[in-house]
Amino acid sequence: MQEDKPVTISVKDLDLWYGATRALNKINLDIESRSITALIGPSGCGKSTFLRTLNRMNDLIDGVRIEGSVRYDGRDIYAPETDVIDLRKQVGMVFQKPNPFPMSVYDNIAYGPRVHGIQDRSVLDEIVERSLVQAALLEEVKDRLHKSALGLSGGQQQRLCIARVLAVEPDVVLMDEPTSALDPISTAKIETLLEDLKKRYTIIIVTHNMQQAGRVSDKAAFFLTGDLVEYSTTKDLFFNPKDERTENYISGRFG
C-alpha cells in the first residue's frame, strides 16, 4: 500500500564532507510524499546533517562539500540553476530549539509570506489564521496575536515555528528533533499535530526518541557514523531489523 505513494525526494550516492572529514557516505534514500519519515541514530551519526542537505541549509556552513544528487520533484537541487530561495519555500524546516523572531506572534507567521511579496492585510490575516489552525495554536494565542512571541511557552513557541513554516505553504517539512527541548505534554501535542499534517505535507523528522519514531513515522531510516544502515517501514525496522547494528541500537545496546 505504501509503495503506491509517489516519491518526493530522491537521494542518490550522497557524500558530504566538512573540510576533510567525511560526514555522510553514499546515502541512497527515497522519501515518499504525504508520509512521515523518521531519521534515527545515535548522536553524531549524520542524521541532522542529512536533513539539512535537503533544503541546502548546509550552504551556510563554511567548508562543506557535497557530491551525489538530491532530487526534489525530479529536479537536482544542487544544480547551478536551482533557486535556493524557491527550494526553501517548498522545503520548510523546524529547528531543534524553538526560534521565534523577537516580534509579535502575528508578525512571526506573516514573516514568510511578507518576504515572498504578500502585503495585502486581509490575505495575510487569512494566512495567519489558517496556519495557526493547522498548527493547533489558534485557541491559545488568539488573544495575544500582537504581543511578543517570546512570551509564549516553549511548546507554544515550537508550534508557532511550525505555523510559521506552514504559512509559506511548503510541500515538505523538515523537522530537526522538534520536541527535544519540550516537556511531555507539549511533545504529545506536537505528535498529534504531526498525524494531522501528514495528510497534506511530506514530513521528515529527525528524532532521538525511539518511541516517538515508532509512534509517528511511517518509514524509518537508521544512520550510523555517516552511513545509512537500514531504511524500511517503521514496523519492519523496529520489529524485523535486517542489520545487526540496527537491532543492537533498537534494543538499547548502544546509543
Binding site: M57, L60, D86, R88, G92, M93, F95, N99, R164, V168
Partner: peptide
Amino acid sequence: SRALREGSLALGASKLQTIGKV
C-alpha cells in the same frame, strides 16, 4: 543567535531580507 538567522533563511528569505528584518 544563529538560530534566528537560520529560521529566517529556512523560510526562504534572502540574506538581505534576513539581515534587514531579523
